[in-house]
Design a binder for these strands. Sequence first.
DNA 1: GTCTATATGGTGATAGAC
DNA 2: GTCTATCACCATATAGAC
Lengths: 222, 222
Amino acid sequence: MTDSATTKGEQTRELILSTALRLFREQGYAKTTMRAIATEAGVSVGNAYYYYSSKDHLMQAYYDHLQEQHRDAVETILAGEKSFVVRLTGVLHTWLDVSAPYHEFAGTFFKTAADPKSPLSPFSTESQPAREASVEIFRRLVEGSDLKLAPELAKELPELLWLLQMGVVLFWVHDDSDELQRTKTLIDRSVPLVDRLLRLTRIPGVRGVVNDVVGLIRAIKP
Amino acid sequence: MTDSATTKGEQTRELILSTALRLFREQGYAKTTMRAIATEAGVSVGNAYYYYSSKDHLMQAYYDHLQEQHRDAVETILAGEKSFVVRLTGVLHTWLDVSAPYHEFAGTFFKTAADPKSPLSPFSTESQPAREASVEIFRRLVEGSDLKLAPELAKELPELLWLLQMGVVLFWVHDDSDELQRTKTLIDRSVPLVDRLLRLTRIPGVRGVVNDVVGLIRAIKP
DNA sequence: GTCTATATGGTGATAGAC
DNA sequence: GTCTATCACCATATAGAC
């Protein structure tokens, strides 16, 4: 079965999704109505709901789409670079590049994602696969890098970096500076900082704090 | 002009707000319709919109309400306690207590607040007064404590603690554990950690990182 | 399985009464 | 200034056509 020979249903599904994403980009999420998506795609509203059970699910699909793009775009960096700083900076900047076209309406996505009851929440069980795929990127990032760490810390680090990425996203969503200069500064300056902090963990006095951090993380995990 | 002799309009405004908050608590935000609020308060829907131009604005009012309660509840701790750890733990736990009745529908509030375009966003200009009042609590917390810090760090610390509080809120919103045990653990274990970290800043190697952190914060501020 | 027509109940806007 | 009646438009549910 090739891509072009997909079933009628798959074609309609694709058509609805691409139409929705286009309209989201053109007029924002709130102003894009399900009616408009259906009309533009040449289907009935009910049909759109047949494939995507809510407007939020269209966002979910967009999110998965982004995720895949990011995973692919990051490949060359992870394959051919050892420096932890360069790897992390690269992964974060790549995310910025991939997401750039959606910056304007990303706020709305974020809004939905922030609701703990939403399946879109990055902490929800529904988005667990996407979250794990994302953490996996950071795991590879750490493992293939020149970073030497205590095993307990190394184990938690990918999830911590994922949290850092969430923080960057939060900042990005609120960033209205020219060319996203502030977010770029945030990345470029915080990554070396993280690197220095991680290397500081060799100092005995600091190591105690690190152990406490690791203990805390384990204590509050569900 | 006393509280009881407020204008008719003020009374109606109060009535609508208290009715809304009660219904929010009883049935959650999404399920509470503007129609229901208006009916229950004995006014027309249009009238409710006259005083609160959207459902979100009713949330804004609720938020301000919480803020005031927190500020008052925190007074005794800030007045009669020197230990930084006790002060910070107290302030955070007090927030938890004040907000407890709203935990269930807080997610929806959070959802709205996460939208950068919403006036409810903690980073928006509209909520700047509320944010400053909140940071002010942390400023008093630091200044009246036994903590000794380098001046540059002491200057940024209140805002950093406010960010910590935002983090706790984010965690709290997603916390469905019994009696909010996980959030309480987070507070009880992270506060001593913050304390230790702050005291570590006396070590020369650590101080360099701290300076970088302070520099970073200043660089990304709007 | 795919899709349409139609219905329900919601938000928010506004003309104009008091 | 305060408020009501009413309206336009929306997300979503569902019965049933193809």
